[in-house]
């Protein structure tokens, strides 16, 4: 649990954000049927509060909501009318928490406790995206991580080394790029920064998970609509979950909206589905965020 310790600091106060997330697919041929799942509902968690949420689907479909294993709110629907375009618009209003100020972290010994290891085992493993052997042949970084006095300091090192290695560049990677590929190409977007950081943290024995959500990129300004981002960052376990944004190297708090958490991107995709028929292309994603 990320519990802010000094909630009195008003300059770090929370925001009320109105988020409109629009995405979908365009199909080359008419599609008769498709089955889809959307993970775009902000969670009410750790001081964040969801005030309202609607999902519009074209062609219209009835929605079955459920909570998945990782705690995300999923909206499932199937479309059975012939269509060439599937559009999904998720509209949410959410209060974000104040920026948390972290208390002292735990120790390496606490992380090595068998009970913790077992409880967090899913966040310590390699996945198709996250690669625990990422630093093979880079003993310097590994040693540096290990030499830190505490897991918290090691986490800062991880962020620093990932940011040294990767430069932010859109279009260089895609949704299927693994941490290993991003590390080798030295470029990527938030998803790649996140998978890479997860790899470095887990390799050092620090449980870490993928967070999918939104980032309000502006300074607080009521009423102005800005084009935001579908964003991803990291939470690591250090006597509690603590969030880090390796892409922006900034504190995670009032500008971040948490939607879903998992081992990697595959556990939290905002839209996934299958359909019957030819080729499809993504419609792209637009996220508009307005501070209320």
């Amino acid at each position: 649990m990320t519990v802010p310790l000094h909630p009195s600091d008003s300059s770090l106060g929370g925001r009320r954000l109105h988020i409109q997330h629009r995405t979908g697919y365009r199909y080359a041929d008419v599609v008769d049927a498709s089955f889809n799942e959307v993970r775009m509902t902000p969670l009410s968690t750790d001081g964040q509060l969801l005030l309202s949420h609607t999902l519009d689907i074209q062609p219209s479909a009835s929605i079955q909501p459920y909570t998945d294993y990782w705690g995300a709110l999923v909206e499932a629907f199937d479309v059975h009318v012939p269509h060439r375009l599937l559009e999904v618009v998720s509209i949410s209003t959410v209060d974000t928490p104040r920026l948390p100020v972290w208390g002292p972290g735990g120790t390496w010994e606490e992380l090595a406790d068998p009970v913790t290891l077992d409880a967090q085992s899913e966040f310590l493993m390699s996945t198709p995206y996250v690669d625990l052997d990422l630093l093979d042949g880079r003993a310097a970084i590994r040693d540096e991580m290990r030499d830190q006095a505490s897991p918290g300091e090691a986490a800062s090192v991880a962020i620093a080394r990932v940011r040294e290695r990767l430069s932010y560049e859109t279009g260089a990677t895609d949704v299927s790029t693994t941490a290993h590929q991003a590390w080798e190409s030295q470029r990527g977007v938030c998803q790649d920064f996140t998978h890479t950081t997860l790899s470095v943290l887990r390799a050092a024995g620090i449980p870490a998970r993928y967070v999918s959500g939104y980032l309000h990129t502006e300074e607080p300004a009521v009423g102005r609509t800005v084009v935001g981002e579908s964003h991803a960052w990291v939470e690591y376990w250090d006597a509690g979950w603590r969030a880090l944004d390796p892409t922006n190297d900034r504190a995670v708090g009032s500008a971040h909206v948490t939607v879903a958490r998992g081992r990697d991107y595959a556990d939290v995709p905002p839209l996934k589905g299958i359909y019957a028929g030819g080729q499809s292309e993504g419609l792209g994603v637009t996220v508009e965020i307005t501070q209320l």
Partner: peptide, 9 residues
């Protein structure tokens, strides 16, 4: 009734 269905992602 629904054609032969090949599912894609």
């Amino acid at each position: 009734q629904h054609g032969t269905i090949v599912w894609s992602h």
